[in-house]
């Protein structure tokens, strides 16, 4: 374990810092200034706990995913039990604990897309990339997620790669879409 150069009090990752009373921020400074400032701003608010979800969201936007370390750090900073934070983080679909691929593919499986054959698109993607929904390719290039409904029902079925929306996709166009993002068979 590293010694803590700045804080007098031992933090979560220091020796002797595991006790209940320890509230010092982690000496490794897990979060960048921007997130720390945001958390402190939220703490000024009455009902600061209600900002837990926006804070987790900000962290995920920065790092791409959440880890137990991040959750513990939030627990320390916000004085909320870790158990509660992991309870919240695992409840909502927005939060992920797995790093996503460089190219994030979302297949919308809302009703309109489903009726128009989105399940076939997902199948085709899974076949081509040889991974399942929720997984990442071994080279980290692609990940497939399922979206509940992106609200573009009139363009159904849709696939979203990173921020680009492909509308009225047919199964045989899937390979071309992947190729646009550097996929090689």
């Amino acid at each position: 374990m590293d010694t803590n150069p700045t804080n007098q009090e031992p933090c979560c990752c220091c020796e002797g810092g595991k006790s209940e009373e320890t509230r010092a921020p982690c000496c490794h400074q897990v979060f960048p200034e921007e997130i720390l400032n945001y958390i402190h701003e939220c703490l000024q608010h009455p009902h600061s706990e209600s900002f837990l979800i926006p804070i987790l969201n900000k962290i995920q936007q920065h790092f791409g995913y959440l880890t137990p370390e991040y959750l513990d750090e939030v627990a320390h900073l916000m004085h909320i039990p870790s158990a509660k934070i992991s309870g919240v983080a695992t409840f909502y679909h927005l939060f992920t604990f797995v790093p996503r691929g460089k190219n994030r593919i979302s297949v919308c499986l809302g009703t309109a897309c489903y009726v128009k054959g989105a399940a076939k698109l997902l199948e085709r993607l899974e076949d081509l990339l040889k991974i399942k929904e929720g997984q990442v390719t071994p080279d980290g290039q692609f990940s497939i997620d399922m979206a509940r409904c992106v609200g573009a029902c009139a363009l159904a079925p849709v696939i979203i790669v990173n921020d680009r929306v492909y509308s009225e996709v047919k199964p045989d166009q899937v390979e071309k879409i992947l190729q646009d993002h550097g996929f090689q068979k």
Binding site: G110, T111, G151, A152, C153
Partner: peptide
């Protein structure tokens, strides 16, 4: 608006 297939609130 979580209903799959509804987008009126968004619009």
């Amino acid at each position: 608006e979580g209903d799959p297939g509804a987008f009126m609130d968004r619009s």
